[in-house]
Design a protein around this nucleic acid. Sequence first.
DNA 1: ACATTTATTGACTCTAAGTCATAATTACGT
DNA 2: ACGTAATTATGACTTAGAGTCAATAAATGT
Lengths: 244, 244
Amino acid sequence: MSVTQQRKGRERAAREELILEHGRRLLLREGFQNLNLDELARSIEYSKGTIYLHVETKEDLALAIATGALKERADLFERASKFTGLTRERMRAVGFACCQFAIVHRDYFNIEMMLRSQSFWEKASEERRRQHGLQAGRLFHIVSSIATEAIRAGDLAPEVRTQDVALSLIAITMGSHIASMQPDIQMLCGLTDPFAAVAAVRRNQDLICDGWSWKPLLKEFDYTATDKRIKTEIFPEATWYTAS
Amino acid sequence: MSVTQQRKGRERAAREELILEHGRRLLLREGFQNLNLDELARSIEYSKGTIYLHVETKEDLALAIATGALKERADLFERASKFTGLTRERMRAVGFACCQFAIVHRDYFNIEMMLRSQSFWEKASEERRRQHGLQAGRLFHIVSSIATEAIRAGDLAPEVRTQDVALSLIAITMGSHIASMQPDIQMLCGLTDPFAAVAAVRRNQDLICDGWSWKPLLKEFDYTATDKRIKTEIFPEATWYTAS
DNA sequence: ACATTTATTGACTCTAAGTCATAATTACGT
DNA sequence: ACGTAATTATGACTTAGAGTCAATAAATGT
């Protein structure tokens, strides 16, 4: 490949980054439905045609942005999974990371929700779908490999299937976030602020772990010190974090 | 009110029913994005203008359809909650009802997902939002009142807050359904058919109940007989049900 | 300097939601 | 039965915005 081609490749990548960056801002502000590609074109100071040199459809663009967010989350999970301690403490650190992500990037959940409609995926490109699957797989792997170690350490029963553990934890986290975002349910449960919602998510994660008899159970161990360590060791930069 | 006005009211209601019925069919087949009101108008043999005499926006129409589905579900929950037995058996019957609904109305979950985007609700009418909240409240109430009875019966610890129990169960059910519908996760977890997915949902519900120490725990009691009774007593018409 | 290839553009097409002036129908008093 | 007023139904029209592509501009190579 010539020097010229290399430079062009860099320029292309830089512009794709520009599109995704501005796209993310607009997508978060307006939601998928109200995201306007004419406005995005104006924002990046290129024409709409140029955007379509980088994405096949509006859905394709949105999926690329969502995958970026997912990658950021998976990176945070990876950091959290390196926490030193009992297996359940490490799992707790990952759960913590998930909630941190939800607090810092509050609006990203609207983006996640957009991915749940079938027609969305049909209109995104094969390659972008693959990229998303890759990041989702990373996330799944982090959770299930902690479960594997838990079995090895004797903290989880050996007959437990790690993919079932991962599924249950992913489900409770996703479900809790979605449920505690619905105004109806917020009212019925008395979830007055985002921190109450996050507390509910973490409580539900504990329920699932206790359900699997993941040792030590919540009532057998004081996780207060763990939580403090997680905060200082995994999220030292977290001046934005206020509630327990 | 005159006799004429009464008749007109009936006619209006009948046509609204017609619109919702055909709308549901199209919405299930095409998804929200691809639901075309010109096509719907053709299908009901009225003009598009007439549709707009009944709904404010396309979102409003879709919400009305979704609320209809939610009501059907709440009705099924109500029936299940009348199951006679221990409190956890009754809760199990409700969980069962939820999974039955998911199997029979497999596509309804796509409709549910459509409700998770913020911009959707903004475009639906106040009244339709209220109606949906009403049905959601019914559902929540059924679950939390079984929890209340469980506390009274000593099956749940008295310090447990029933709304937290309801939230956790709603979250795990919703989350499990969503997670087990995502192709990536299906592959990672080896969920090959819809029955495997439903089995995962029910297993996760058990985990949450065990997490709350809802007596009798899964390992302390044989729920096989309960499941058989639920099938025959609550779903006698269920010839469509094949897996355990 | 010129030819050729590559990149960029924005006016245009097309689809579909939502509107509203007009037409058709119905209600009702005489 | 008739005429008039009120109600109801219509579909051509407006508008918004995604996606296209022929024309234009810029870059590259000789």
